[in-house]
């Protein structure tokens, strides 16, 4: 499994040709208490960098962008009732959706864990 990160603070964990996407711990801590998550419909075609989901705290709504181009194959339905999972377990139960990758080479342009750590450290 490969895990990559975007500058918009999404992570994507790829197994085979499927990637599971969520937001990073840094992102959830910046947003504060998550109160609502809007997930993409299964079968929806996503563009790399295009809007895929929406995550809302009390005072902010943020788009979640797809790290890769592909088709949505699964959405994390429990988030509808328990958006707090994004806060408590952003890399685990707080995942957003899964996408069938159209072009695995797109991953090359994303950051690995160490690069993302440096990137976060450079903010603020």
């Amino acid at each position: 499994m490969t895990v990559k990160y975007t500058k918009d603070h999404e992570w994507i964990a790829v197994t085979g040709s499927t990637g599971r996407v969520g937001i990073t711990d840094y992102a959830q801590s910046q947003l504060g208490d998550i109160v609502f998550v809007e997930l993409p419909a299964i079968g929806k075609a996503l563009e790399k960098g295009g809007e895929a989901a929406v995550v809302e705290s009390v005072k902010a709504a943020s788009e979640v962008y797809s790290p890769v181009t592909g088709t949505v194959t699964a959405a994390n339905e429990p988030l509808a009732d328990e958006p707090a999972l994004v806060n408590s377990d952003p890399r685990g139960e707080g995942w957003f959706f899964e996408v069938e990758l159209a072009d695995a080479s797109e991953l090359d342009g994303l950051m690995d864990e160490a690069a993302y750590k440096d990137y976060v450290a450079s903010l603020d």
Partner: peptide, 9 residues
Amino acid sequence: LSTREQHIR
């Protein structure tokens, strides 16, 4: 649910 509204969205 004010994230629907103009001052945030």
